[in-house]
Structures are given as structure tokens and as C-alpha cells.
Design a protein around this nucleic acid. Sequence first.
DNA 1: CTTGATATGTTATAAAATAACATTTAACAA
DNA 2: TTGTTAAATGTTATTTTATAACATATCAAG
Lengths: 160, 160
Amino acid sequence: MNGIGFHSHDHKSCIFEAVKAAEEQCCRQGLQLTPVRKRSLEILLEEHRAMRAYDLLDRLAKDGFGSQPPVAYRALEFLTNNGFVHKIEKLNAFIACTHRESGHMPVFLICSQCERVSEIVLPEAEEIWSGVETTSGFSITTALLEIEGVCAACKVNTDK
Amino acid sequence: MNGIGFHSHDHKSCIFEAVKAAEEQCCRQGLQLTPVRKRSLEILLEEHRAMRAYDLLDRLAKDGFGSQPPVAYRALEFLTNNGFVHKIEKLNAFIACTHRESGHMPVFLICSQCERVSEIVLPEAEEIWSGVETTSGFSITTALLEIEGVCAACKVNTDK
DNA sequence: CTTGATATGTTATAAAATAACATTTAACAA
DNA sequence: TTGTTAAATGTTATTTTATAACATATCAAG
């Protein structure tokens, strides 16, 4: 157990489970979790933080994959399109999804001190979205919710 | 009156009022709404859409201001820091604030067909944020909420 | 075995943003 | 008045982020 994210968890098994789940989902949906794509997902899961595309690219290149930008961007496109990875727009960075179970609109807490990003689920938010749809006549396809601030751990540190 | 945004309004007076309000706020807070900054705000208000930094830069250059990227980015930094303009992260674009009255966390509806962006206020959302703070111990400084979809007007058009 | 769709790799370039530094301006103290 | 400082503007150069365009490879279906 270690303190990645904003709370502790068994990181190795979390990676293993997530990759297995991705493989199964791809199998069911006829998607190809090719070597680059799988490795990209693994790297993002291992890092367990928001990674920039070029940092992922470096890692992929070291693992013997192509070394040019499209290699990373294409893998990321596949993974984000299929919900395995999310893009954090505020950081121009990508993070592995940690809430595969829910057909959620993801919400991210971004700590500006430690730069860690935590994905949470807010069922209340879903209600708000549907309220917006009925009152405004706007049909929602995706909702991006990025909350920036200071996480509990960093608050403790700065209080000292 | 015309149909900019997702609903009609008197656009000229809206610009005039917004600039006047910005001048007053700057005066009160000891901020300098210099010529480039004021002109940038005017352009964004006139356009009434999310503009990219380089498009704003072109307009500023034509008006006799500097023609290099920092000119636009610095004006935008001032305007966003002080709440006169918001950045739409999904579009890498900037839009004039249309809800100066509220000390709001802004919410944007982005139509993927007509590319128009509408700023709304969701008081319910504010409650959710404070809920997040108490349950997670995370102190929020800013919340970014960008909703993408199809606006009412475009839905009518595509239904035809 | 060839056709078509998908995926991978490359080079080249576009788009978005910032660093670093010189010059200007205005407020203010000496 | 002059000198000093802080803020703002301007420039060149560079970094960071992302995509276009095209060649090659892989593999299942006809």
C-alpha cells in the first residue's frame, strides 16, 4: 500500500485489474487493445498521475515503440475515446480512469501543490446536468469538470 | 437585437455596459485597464464567441498594437485573472464574461455544431462544490465546468 | 491471393504558449 | 529637477502541444 492519489490503495493489483478489465471490454466491443495501446494504458496506470503526451512518448520509445508524437497521441486517442483514459484539459495531460464501473461523467480534483489528480464520482452532478438539459434545451454529450485547489494532505503540510 | 449566444439580446448596449463595468471595477481595485487590455476586452465582447489568442492578436495588430504572441497572451492573462474573460480549455479559446454580477464559478455550454459558447450560472453547483470540500478535505480554488453538446437552435436545424 | 480496413511508423508542420530581454511610462522620493 | 522604481509594452527566440500527410505492415473477408 502507498499514498498515490489522495488516499492509499494496493497499487499493483489496481493496475492488474484495470488492464484485465480493459482487455475484457475491448474483447466484448470488438476493439483492439494492441501492444502500444496496452502498454500506454499500463504506463498511465503505473504512474498514477496526469502524464503529458510527450512524457508517455518517451516511455513508449524506450520500450521499443515508435518515437514520434503520433505514436503517443494515437494511443491516447484510442484510450480516451473508449473511456480507459481521461484528458485533464487544465494540465494538457492524461490520466488512467479509476472509475470504470460507473457510466459516469468524470470529475477531477487537481491539487495545485502536489500536482496529483484524483478522479471522483458525483451522482448529484448527473442530476444537475439533466436539469440543464430540460431547462435550456441543450443536449449534453460530454461534461468536463475539473476542480483545482489544495488536497487534504498538502493542507496539513502547509499548516506546519 | 440579434441571435448571438443561444438567445437574443441587445448586443451593443451589452458591450458598452460591460466595458463601463470593467473600468469601474479596475478603478475601485487599483487595476490598470490599459489601451491593449481595454481593446482586447472590447474585441471579445464584440465577437461574443470564444476566440483563439492568435485571432485576437491579429485584431490587436490591425488596431496598431504589437503583433507578437505575448501581446495577446498578456492582455488575456490580465483579463482572465480579474474575471473579465474566461478561458474555454476544451477549445483553447477565450470568451468575455457575461455574468459579472455573480461571484460565480462559471459554467459553459459549448455547442459542437455552431461552436457557440454560452455562459450560465448554476447555483446548485455551488452547493455541490462545498459538499466536495467537506467530504474530501479538498480546498477548492477554481472549478472548471465545460459542457459540450448541441444547442437548442442546432437541434431544430438538424431535425429538418 | 488480393482487396479493404485498421494499425503503425515516419517526416514535416501547425498551433498554442512562454522565456528572456530591451524600452517606455508614470509615480514618487531625493 | 533628477534619479529610482515598478508596471506595462514591445521584440526575438524557443518551447510545448498537437496534427497532417504519406509509406508500410497486418490481417480478415471475398
